[in-house]
């Protein structure tokens, strides 16, 4: 179980995290979303024991992470850089990390490498970016830690590489209940891998939700009515967004599917359609509800 309670992190005068509360259960695949500078990487680094929180607590399985070798032995961190491995070969990676992680599995390492077939003796400065990323992912998985943290680890990978890496991750998550925390700009990826996510903005968590329930709660409605209605005409449901374009009405409403459908049908629509929202749309509307104008955020970086 990962728990951040009131976590604060400052870099000089800049508040990177401003009282972050998060709880991530064991075995979860958790996504951290947010624009650049939201604080995602900071959270990941706090959890990896690289940073020390300036306030609040950061705990894994009830123990503080920073300067705690026992806890860190259960954690593997993959960041978005690959240049630090340039002088090392795959065999070196294996040798290096196996010395730190007591559960390191050479069999798993070899099995994973069978899929991607990376040369063991060649130094990684001769690898492509994707190959380096694969190398460190299989190393991280082979360490067989309880927790795996990835900070924008898929950035720069082509679709095929992404799929390979994602498949490896998912297999391990399913095999042994690995808890994964993935920080990314890419909502689509989070949507595919994660079962819960948090959206961060300016050092705060805007919301933290299970993705399925999140999708099940918010609906997009397209309907045509014989007369004009307003948002207030639907008091039974929570309308997040109401827009009329000629005879067509677009609504984003929160609530159960049955309640929303019943509320709309009461108005005898000529045309009625309920469309599932993308994660992006859910997040945009949630942010609006929380008082954050999407225009102030670089939404192009959110998927």
């Amino acid at each position: 179980m990962i728990k951040l309670k009131g976590a604060v992190k400052k870099f000089d005068s800049f508040d990177a995290l401003d009282g972050v509360d998060l709880e991530i259960g064991s075995g979860a695949a958790f996504g951290l979303l947010g624009s650049n500078g939201a604080g995602k990487s900071t959270v990941i680094r706090l959890l990896s024991g690289i940073y020390e929180a300036d306030g609040g607590t950061v705990e894994i399985d009830g123990e503080s992470v920073f300067d705690n070798a026992d806890v860190k032995r259960r954690v593997f961190f993959i960041n978005d850089e690959t240049v630090q491995y340039n002088g090392m070969s795959l065999a070196d990676l294996r040798r290096y990390f196996s010395g730190f992680y007591p559960n390191f599995s050479n069999e798993l390492f070899d099995k994973l490498n069978e899929t991607i077939k990376l040369p063991e003796k060649k130094t990684m400065d001769k690898f492509s970016k994707g190959m380096k990323r694969q190398a460190i992912v299989i190393t991280g998985l082979a360490c067989r830690t309880d927790y795996l943290f990835l900070d924008e680890a898929f950035d720069g990978l082509d679709p095929t590489m992404r799929n390979i890496v994602k498949r490896m991750l998912v297999d391990e998550m399913l095999d042994r209940g690995l808890t994964t925390v993935i920080s990314s700009h890419n909502l689509k990826e989070i949507n595919e891998i994660c079962d819960s996510a948090a959206l961060m903005h300016k050092g705060k968590v805007l919301f933290c939700r299970d993705l399925d329930s999140l999708k099940g709660e918010v609906h997009k409605i397209q309907a045509a009515f014989d007369k004009k209605y307003t948002k207030e005409d639907f008091p039974e449901i929570e309308v997040l967004h109401f827009e009329q374009n000629g005879s067509l009405t677009y609504m984003i409403a929160k609530g159960s599917t049955e309640a929303v459908e019943e509320a709309v049908r009461k108005k005898s629509p000529l045309v009625f359609d309920m469309i599932p929202l993308t994660l992006e749309e859910i997040f945009i509307y949630e942010m609006e509800e929380n008082g954050y104008d999407c225009k102030g955020i670089d939404c192009t970086n959110i998927g």
Binding site: R73, S98, G99, P102, N103, T145, M173, R176
Partner: peptide, 24 residues
């Protein structure tokens, strides 16, 4: 999904700090 408990150490030959030193 529930997390499995860490297994007992299997592959580390040296204490991590010793391993780090030898690596250096």
């Amino acid at each position: 999904m529930t997390a499995k408990a860490s297994t007992a150490p299997t592959s580390a030959k040296y204490e991590p700090s010793v391993h780090n030193g030898l690596w250096n």
